[in-house]
Amino acid sequence: MPDAPDKPETEPPGNRFRKPSWSQVVVAILIGSLAFAITLQIRQSKTNDYSGVRGDELVELLKSLDSANERIGTQIDDLTATRNDLLSSTKRSAEAEKQAKQRSEQLSILAGTSGATGSGVTLTITAPDNAIDAAALLDAVQELRDAGAEAIAINGVARVIAQTYFLDGDNAIRVGGHDLKPPFVIEAIGDPHTMAEAVRFRGGLIDRVTNRGGSATLIEQTKITITALADVKSPEYARPTS
């Protein structure tokens, strides 16, 4: 603004204040209107509505919101899929756990590592010493197994499992590490009727025991409990192939 000033600053300031010139009033009005506009605009900007936003800016805003919405939607889909995966895998593992538990129960009865209870028979064999040898006792056990015995214990101490051996000893029969003497009480869990039939038929176990000079009695029971456990040895040489 290099224009030459119309009015040189010759008047003293006090005089100017007392008699304001026309142009000074105009300047004051302009500055006042500027201040007015600034306060107005500041107030306007503080109100957080979108009325002061341009149309194309609104469009941009809408677009960005749309894309954000889309992004979040995809995220929701991903997370939902992950959640469903996790849910189904949880369900699957719960199912697997249930099956494994069931299997473990079956195997523990089979392996003799847990007690067993259920309907069954109690077969009592009384005989003079050495009338019943290990083979005869094993015969009796096999007869019961044939008839579907699921858990067998002799004299309440010897649990009969796959590895159980029968050995003749001095005045006793060694069954899986226990010396057993007559009378032999064989408890077997299974279908009582089938097992009774398997033992009682003519020429069967009872007849054979009688032939050897002993006697055998069989009682069918609706509930017997076997508490004898077999010694568990983890296999030293055998490994599962699968």
Binding site: A28, A35, T39
Partner: peptide, 20 residues
């Protein structure tokens, strides 16, 4: 005078509170 104008403008803006 311009300073008075400034003050008057600010006060007017604050008191009247018009919308743009």
């Amino acid at each position: 005078i311009p300073v008075i104008g400034l003050v008057v403008g600010v006060v007017a803006g604050l008191v009247l509170q018009p919308t743009v």
